[in-house]
């Protein structure tokens, strides 16, 4: 009897700990996918494939960092795919046609991304328009600008310094190192600073945060700026991978980015989740795609499977009470 009580208490403690660590749920899912890969497509573990996977994951994962900030603060940013496209085109034009150094081009697109993010933020906080509607508008406007400035044409980039970023350093693509640096800096900011805490607090209970005298509008603006900047970096990195600027690049990426954030365990209602969990979410979504390609599953079926994964993740979060406020 006493032994039963001990085990039931132990089980409750383990369950509570499991529920309280945001990363564990998505990590469990990722381990499941790694096991699945070992059974279904062992070639998944070939070094060349891992290197390619790390390159693939970088674009979505960088944009997901910024999107996670927005979602954690209780809003949503649908404009990320278009900002990726615009940054990709602008970086290519600046380097190929205006002889900008790759670093100046990066700084420029980050600034543009930040301005678009701030515009989103101001519409949401000052004009009180729901973020879904605001960013749906900017999604279209920004994509239109990308088409206008490129004339709808592809812009190849032959700058060696820029293309060198597509190489591998210590077995890992340089663009993935860029992502890791961004992940470390933003995780430090998110977990250890006041503003990072306020992002979560605003998503958790905006009214409470405001009543305590915290500038919640400023916090939301900051989240949108982060999202714009991260998407711009993602667009730049996509340009590195493609070796060109394509005006239609990043089309539909907003859904992949949001899916990565949600599968990582960040609640769409805000407040719950972490950037590490988002990183795991990005790995889950990219790995599934990779496994399906290796297993010879067609492109149309890939859409269906990715959608089902998202629904399963949402169901798991519902069971864990993440959607219940």
């Amino acid at each position: 009897m006493a032994r039963n009580t001990f085990y039931s208490r132990l089980l409750t403690t383990i369950k509570e700990k499991y529920a309280s660590i945001d990363e564990l749920k998505s990590l469990t899912g990722f381990i499941g996918i790694l096991i699945l890969a070992a059974v279904v497509t062992p070639q998944f573990y070939l070094p060349q494939n891992i290197t390619m996977l790390l390159g693939q994951v970088s674009v979505i994962a960088i944009a997901a960092l910024g999107e996670a900030f927005v979602i954690l603060s209780g809003s949503i940013d649908l404009s990320v795919g278009s900002i990726i496209g615009l940054a990709n085109v602008v970086a290519a034009i600046l380097i190929a046609q205006y002889n900008f150094s790759p670093y100046m081009a990066l700084f420029s697109v980050m600034t543009i991304g930040g301005i678009i993010g701030l515009t989103n933020g101001i519409f949401v906080t000052k004009l009180r328009i729901p973020s879904f509607v605001v960013t749906l508008g900017t999604l279209t406007v920004v994509r239109g600008i990308a088409y206008i400035i490129s004339g709808g044409l592809n812009i190849p980039v032959y700058n060696e310094e820029f293309l060198r970023l597509n190489e591998v350093l210590y077995g890992v693509p340089i663009i993935f190192w860029i992502y890791l640096i961004a992940l470390v800096i933003l995780t430090l900011f998110f977990e250890k600073t006041r503003l990072g805490l306020y992002v979560r607090a605003t998503g958790s209970n905006e009214l409470a945060v405001r009543n305590l005298g915290v500038d919640n509008s400023g916090v939301k603006n900051l989240a949108f700026v982060f999202s714009g900047v991260c998407s711009a970096i993602a667009g730049y990195v996509l340009g590195v991978r493609l070796g060109a600027g394509y005006p239609h690049s990043g089309l539909g990426y907003e859904l992949d980015v949001i899916a990565a954030v949600v599968v990582g365990g960040v609640a769409l209602t805000g407040g719950t989740g972490s950037l590490i969990a988002t990183a795991i979410g990005a790995f889950i979504m990219t790995s599934i795609l990779n496994i399906m390609v290796l297993a010879g599953i067609g492109g149309f079926m890939q859409y269906v499977v990715r959608g089902i994964i998202l629904l399963v993740a949402a169901l798991a979060m519902r069971r864990a009470g993440v959607f219940v406020k």
Partner: peptide, 26 residues
Amino acid sequence: DFMLCPDLNVTQNVFLGREIVSGEFL
């Protein structure tokens, strides 16, 4: 209605808006 942030822990809620920082970090 308490005006707490349900996703933050007790310590974070109690100090919300008046956190103690060392340099830039909480």
